[in-house]
Write a protein that binds this DNA or RNA. Structure first.
Lengths: 336, 336
DNA sequence: AGAACAATTTCAACCGTTTGCATAACGAAA
DNA sequence: TTTCGTTATGCAAACGGTTGAAATTGTTCT
């Protein structure tokens, strides 16, 4: 690699000391206008760019935030990254992305990577496999601010940004009931995640509100396309099949629609389906999917803003953890 | 932020010099076994982690690669990021992501950001707006290896990784013809991008091969959902409407299907449609979309591998630019 | 002329780590 | 005892930039 132009190069060519050059470049009042302009002109001519690494070493900060995320390919997460990057960009921060691929082991490695890379703060949505959170607590012990988003558990001593899962689930199930459903199944997320618990609670309470008996046999833990489709096929073959489905994400919801079509059931006439996410696919499938908009972009923005706030704060001891809840919205389409 | 444990802390506690500690930690033969173990034990006890920034400053490398990409939310690009991150992870590199949001101005800013962050190399897919490439050439002048992927233009003196757009387009149109289409329209990408030119060429040659007259009035420059839908609606209303469509991406293809449905045309009976990308949505829409698999993940992998190869190489002068072409594959589904 | 002061500029230390070279300690050979 | 070789450790410079304090220069006043 070509040697970079340094402040020293400029200093030598101009017969000045590095300190003078440094000050001239940042408009320090002590420097005479003559030297200031001379330095700046030469710097521009040579294409001088300050060496961030050197600055980082001195300031012990990198203006970089680490992002640990399960899967970039998932629409919801890419929307979040989008929001994060937006805020980071506007505040002159860079984002380092680490995928856990839903693997606990890899996620632990990722936490090491962010430590090695000396990021200023970390945004985390942990993997489905993760049950132990000590690797994240190690970050907190190192006083690196951490903000968790979307996936969250109880008892985590750190900032959190989540969608209002309870409200979203309630909206979804309420909507199904208003459309006439009597027997509503729920495809749920793992129950150790708050997102799983809260959506189930919303489902539960919406049924209760309408005096519908809550049958836990209608709750199935599944959140992938393939699994959901298989399950839906078997459920829809039963004589007392549900007439409504509330799925934990759009993929599962679309899988249900596909399964219904295979069994020659009409959506929404025979079976109504609501998803959760409002992904691109939701408006592309047939019939278009009614779903809960999780506002991934906003969630990412908020998470990043909260992290930046932490990075600026210098109160000792630090403010106690905060939880931000993003309201969701029902997007009614053709599947209900 | 809590002060990090440094080599100096260890040195003082053990009454040694920093050099001895440094050497002990990396098993330098000069160090006596006794001190070596003492140092290592204390380091482990204190949770010492080498300060990457300091190492970076010394080695003038960051083991970080910059990624400049139009839109993370687009499935194809997130698949590519996935592939890139995979290779980077395995080789102990980190990835910094910068979105251009299809904006030239922001893209120029992004190139500054990667320079400031002193990444070791850069992966680029430029924005649709970009017609001038001097900002990238500035990177090349700074001898920062750059690999372009997917979007590429002629005369770029840098490595490139692209899908075989010509072959993919040929496969797609050939398939439509074999399924009986006589009048095939093409929704194309901007013609200043090779991806636009090559797909058009593939379309062209497949028609020629079957002795079908090439009518340039059937080629429309559009690659977004909304625009494509509007266009498809007006085209399909015409008396001599096409009986086949080859779209430059899945979004546009699905828009055509939607438009056909709105006009009570059946897919594939009345109109056949082929996309390009093989996104998630392609297998979720109704009918499932026949498309060309672009192997985004592999494309990302290859691009990253090529960059890493450049980073390792030290031949002077450097090897001349290479172009890698990834074969595509037809995925026949229900829309044809 | 000498003092006092302001305006510029330089010196040197520092951030954390590595590394070529010098040096200390010690036993063995002369 | 001196000298030579080992072996183990320390010194100091370097990476590129910042910054408090010291030094230089020039100007003005007495």
């Amino acid at each position: 690699m070509k040697r970079q132009i340094t402040i020293k190069d400029i200093a030598i060519k101009l017969g000045l000391s590095t300190s003078t050059v440094s000050r001239a470049l940042k408009d320090h009042p002590d420097i005479s206008p003559k030297t200031r302009t001379a330095v700046k002109e030469l710097a521009a001519l040579l294409g001088y760019r300050p060496n961030m690494i050197a600055l980082n070493l001195r300031s012990n900060s990198t203006r970089t935030i680490g992002l640990i995320i399960p899967e970039i390919e998932h629409y919801f997460f890419s929307a979040i990254i989008n929001g994060i990057e937006e805020v980071a960009y506007k505040n002159d921060y860079s984002v380092m992305v680490f995928q856990s691929n839903e693997s606990y082991k890899r996620e632990v490695n990722n936490t090491h990577a962010v430590l090695t890379n000396r990021v200023d703060g970390v945004l985390v949505s942990f993997s489905k496999e993760t049950l132990d959170f000590s690797h994240f607590m190690k970050l907190v012990e190192n006083e690196i601010p951490v903000v968790f988003f979307d996936r969250v558990v109880d008892g985590l001593l750190a900032d959190q940004v989540v969608a209002d899962d309870y409200q979203g689930a309630f909206l979804a199930v309420n909507h199904l009931i208003e459309k006439g459903c009597k027997r509503i199944a729920h495809f749920s997320a793992p129950q150790h995640l708050l997102i799983g618990k809260n959506r189930l609670a919303g489902y539960h309470d919406a049924l209760l509100k309408h005096n519908i008996h809550v049958d836990l046999n209608l709750v199935f833990p599944t959140d992938t396309f393939d699994e959901s489709k298989k399950l839906a096929l078997s459920i829809l073959k039963q004589p007392n099949r549900p007439d409504g489905f509330f799925a934990v994400n759009d993929m599962s919801a679309i899988a249900i629609i596909k399964a219904a079509h295979e069994l020659n059931l009409r959506v929404p006439e025979d079976v109504k389906v609501v998803g959760f996410e409002n992904s691109k696919s939701a408006s592309l499938c047939e019939p278009e999917l009614t779903t809960i908009d999780q506002f991934g972009f906003e969630l990412g923005r908020e998470a990043c803003l909260m992290l930046l706030r932490r990075l600026k704060e210098n109160s000792q001891p630090p403010l106690k953890p905060e939880r931000k809840v993003i309201k969701t919205r029902l997007v009614a389409r053709k599947s209900t």
